[in-house]
Simulated scan of single mutants.
Amino acid sequence: MAPYLSVVIPAYNEARRLPQTLPLVLQFLNAQPWSWELLVVDDGSTDQTVALAEAACREFAQARVIQNPHRGKGYTVRTGMTQAIGDYVLFSDADLAVPMEEWPKLEAKLQQGYEIVIASREGAGASRIDEPFMRHLMGRVFNTIVRVLGIGKFQDTQCGFKVFSREASHDVFGRMRLYDDTTEAPKGAAVTAFDVEVLYLALRRGYRIAEVPVTWRYGEETKVDNIRDSWRNLRDVLKVRWNAISGQYRDVKPKNIEHRA
């Protein structure tokens, strides 16, 4: 039988953080009354990430490590989201910037009929802890660009804590154009705006999406490079917009139309 929840954790050179965060995830999941699976997807790490992840998962038959070639976070998350078999599929950053204890807030929306629920660091009830001012400013400028370009009206597209129904997860991530099997290996960590394309595709498909304010903590060991990743994220958003106006998403039709065809 399919587990109730699959948790996907992308990891690139996370040997310092995984020994602290993975046990917390496993402890949380093992305390739940429902079934689960954990997929740690390695992005071609060059440190001891794989060995440490396998050691942490060894005690649990529901937990496993998937080894990917190095292609960046978008491709890594895509791998886990399309291979997960849970009724619901959640991806979470390896640093647990949003703790697993925030899961019930997202689950409540799923039970109301939403097929995708995304955590948000904005809005009433959201909390940002220890975030530098410049990082926050960059995020708000980026979100304004996303809105101006017409890619949804979300307050926060980039928070690394999102849950999808299994159908939506396999469907939307399987349609990604920016980070698919043709993606070339980046240099170093590649924090990208794959979330923007995922949400754009989900809107085109007609999935019901809810945004939920959460508590988020800034990590001192963040892999976000203010200059490099700001440019990379802007480039991704522009690519999504170009793909949209040039007809490259023409085949992505609403589910209800597809089902009647």
Rank of each mutant, 00 (worst) to 15 (best):
A261Q: 11
L38F: 03
G174C: 10
V198R: 12
A31T: 03
A84P: 02
W242I: 01
V212T: 02
E197D: 09
R260C: 05
F28M: 00
E184K: 14
D42R: 03
N233Q: 15
R121M: 08
A51W: 00
A63H: 08
I85E: 13
G72C: 08
G247E: 11
I227G: 00
Q158C: 06
G113V: 14
A94W: 09
M100E: 04
Q112L: 14
G247F: 08
I257Y: 13
S35Q: 11
A53D: 06
S35H: 03
P19L: 11
T182M: 08
P33T: 07
E167G: 03
E54I: 01
A11N: 09
T192V: 15
R232L: 12
A244L: 02
A261C: 01
Y12H: 13
R250E: 14
S6A: 05
K187E: 13
P33F: 06
H170M: 08
F28A: 05
Q20I: 14
L5C: 06
T46R: 09
G160S: 11
D229W: 14
R121P: 01
D156K: 02
D87K: 14
V7W: 06
Q111D: 12
V146D: 04
V117T: 05
P3Y: 02
F133K: 12
V191L: 15
R71D: 01
A63I: 04
R166K: 10
Q158K: 05
W216A: 07
N233D: 05
L52F: 05
Q20C: 05
R177L: 15
E197F: 09
D225A: 14
R260D: 11
Q112N: 04
T79D: 07
N226S: 12
V25S: 06
D171T: 10
Y207E: 07
T215I: 09
L52S: 03
A124H: 02
M134R: 11
A119I: 02
S45I: 01
R17F: 10
M134Y: 12
A94Y: 11
P10S: 11
K255F: 06
K153T: 13
E197G: 08
W231D: 01
A51G: 13
Q83S: 06
Q112R: 13
F173K: 07
R71W: 03
G125V: 02
T76D: 08
R175S: 13
P19E: 10
D225L: 15
N233K: 15
A190L: 13
L201R: 11
R235Y: 06
D95H: 14
N68Y: 00
D225Q: 15
T79C: 11
A202K: 07
L149A: 06
H259K: 10
T157I: 03
R175L: 14
Y200Q: 07
T183F: 02
S6Y: 03
K187D: 12
G206W: 03
W36E: 01
L238Y: 04
R228P: 00
N143S: 10
A202D: 05
K223M: 10
L110T: 07
R260G: 00
W231L: 14
E211M: 08
S35C: 04
L39Q: 02
R204V: 07
K253F: 03
M138R: 15
A97K: 12
R204A: 10
E167L: 13
I209Y: 04
D156V: 02
S92W: 07
R217Y: 04
A244W: 04
A185P: 09
K153P: 00
I129D: 04
